[in-house]
Amino acid sequence: MEKTQNNRAWLLLLPMLAVVLFSAIIPLMTVVNYSVQDTFGQNVFFWAGLDWFREILSSDRVHGALGRQIMFSGIILAIEVPLGIIVALSMPKRGAWVSVCLVLMSLPLLIPWNVVGTIWQILGRPDIGLVGYTLDSLGIDYNYTQDALDAWITVVLMDVWHWTSLVALLAYAGLRSIPNAYYQAAKIDQASRWKVFRYIELPKMRGVLTIAILLRFMDSFKIYTEPFVLTGGGPGSSTTFLSVDLVKMAIGQFDLGPAAAFSIMYFLVILLISWVFYTVMTNIDKQEGM
């Protein structure tokens, strides 16, 4: 067939380009602009080169936030992925309870993030909160506003409560797609329950689990609302994660230059990690398609 060559077709891309321009490119360029300039107010800017980047890279405060961030993502992945798999394995495979379970599992996912923060903030309060009051009555000294460890436990618990069901639902979908013949063959082969999990269920869930890990990693790495509402980053800076710190720097202190440099590096880190995930995932697909 003869291909029609009409360069005016490019014009059809203009609306899309305009949207991307306003939603992504212009804001991003503003940030880039801030990151290489300094100002003393009155909207007067002068060139600062890479100073802000150097400052951020050597800043103990940013290092601390990054360390906490990595620790947080690591902990919640280590809890939510195995827990989600266990929940998915124990969910019923058919019958009326399937829908009940699915609805119950989706509930935490439907709650707005700041509400989740508020729920746990109230739950944990030693004076009126169910969890805080009960623990204190039992003689356990629990106070998430003053004790860093308690604050961490609460933040992690909140995230596990909020997001484990996402992993569970994805894992459940993976499990449901395994043909019955595999289980029957395993019975014939006299495979133990562990071997069924290790050699049938886990390999078949690999695809959805990779997606679950990617989603949970990205979300937890940019977590902001819940710890902000719950602890405000405290006590001290013990639960100040990257985005909490970034907002403090940009809007609290109005250090636009460093904050802009910070955001760009934050963005690059996420981009890098997403690229690694993407590469790993496409490699898996390639192996499976072989």
């Binding site: 595999y182 063959a185 019975k187 014939i188 006299q190």
Partner: peptide, 17 residues
Amino acid sequence: TAERNIAQVFQFPVVYD
């Protein structure tokens, strides 16, 4: 099934990937 000591081959291939 395990006690019966039976082998069975199914319609579609079942292999441990």
